[in-house]
Design a protein around this nucleic acid. Structure first.
Length: 222
DNA sequence: TTGTGTTTTACGACCTCC
DNA sequence: GGAGGTCGTAAAACACAA
């Protein structure tokens, strides 16, 4: 079926305006493959309402630009074909075009656009996946920071407790020394009685005091 | 009805591969 | 150098709220 007829059946009001659209190729006269000019050149298109002004334009109007909406059936078949293979070899293009009564160029363009849509979709999926992973990492980080905060508080409390014990120990040592000096006048090796202060004997050991300083130093570093 | 945003069709420019 | 790819974009077609 002729595509113009097909389109005019589906969109009877569009064909006339389509035929009024033309494209002026290479308006600046440069070759299409000129890589020495990286600046993108806008192609020029005649607006819908304008008419041809010379023979070239008339020729362009007659043959070049026909924007035709594909039928549902054509789209379904193209999608099916795209599912099988995203690339389009020459033979396959001709075959599909013949089967769907389309211009081979239309099939090529449809595949180009379809690949672009597919790529966009893939990018969006990839973005969503990465965002999900990122959110999970951020959540885990928050949990860890909260945990660090709690442990820091516990450490601080423990350090305070040690400080209190240390101060009590100093007081005790002072009183012990004064009493022991009087006691030692009476008995030489009398054991130190700490029961009144409720402090274990091992705390009176120098190594214990050194341990306190050691842990305090560690805490300061932390 | 109309303004506006989105999708679809088509193309130019440029790139890559053979 | 040609064929066919991507990328960016124009313009038609379409959807939809106001």
């Amino acid at each position: 079926m002729d595509q113009t007829v097909l389109s005019s059946q589906v969109y009877p009001n569009t064909i006339q305006s389509h035929s009024q659209c033309i494209i002026v190729n290479q308006i600046d006269g440069s070759s299409s493959g000129d890589r020495s000019k990286p600046v993108k050149r806008r192609r020029k298109r005649r607006s819908r309402g304008s008419s041809a002004t010379n023979e070239d334009d008339v020729r362009a109007m007659e043959g070049m630009f026909k924007k035709r909406k594909l039928t549902d059936e054509q789209v379904i078949m193209l999608e099916y074909s795209f599912e099988n293979e995203h690339k389009l070899e020459s033979g396959r293009k001709e075959k599909i075009a013949g089967e769907l009564s389309l211009d081979p160029r239309q099939v090529a363009v449809w595949f180009q656009n379809r690949r672009a849509r597919w790529k966009n979709k893939k990018l969006e999926e990839e973005y969503a996946k990465l965002k999900s992973q990122h959110d999970s990492v951020v959540l885990a980080q928050c949990q860890l920071e909260s945990q660090v905060l709690k442990l820091t508080e516990q450490l601080s409390e423990a350090q305070n407790e040690i400080q209190k014990l240390s101060e009590r120990l100093v007081v005790q040592e002072t009183s012990t020394n004064s009493s022991s000096s009087s006691l030692s006048a009476e008995t030489n090796d009398a054991p130190t009685d700490t029961t009144n202060y409720n402090i274990p004997l091992y705390m009176l050991d120098n190594s214990y005091l050194q341990n306190i300083e050691y842990w305090d130093g560690l805490y300061e570093q932390f």
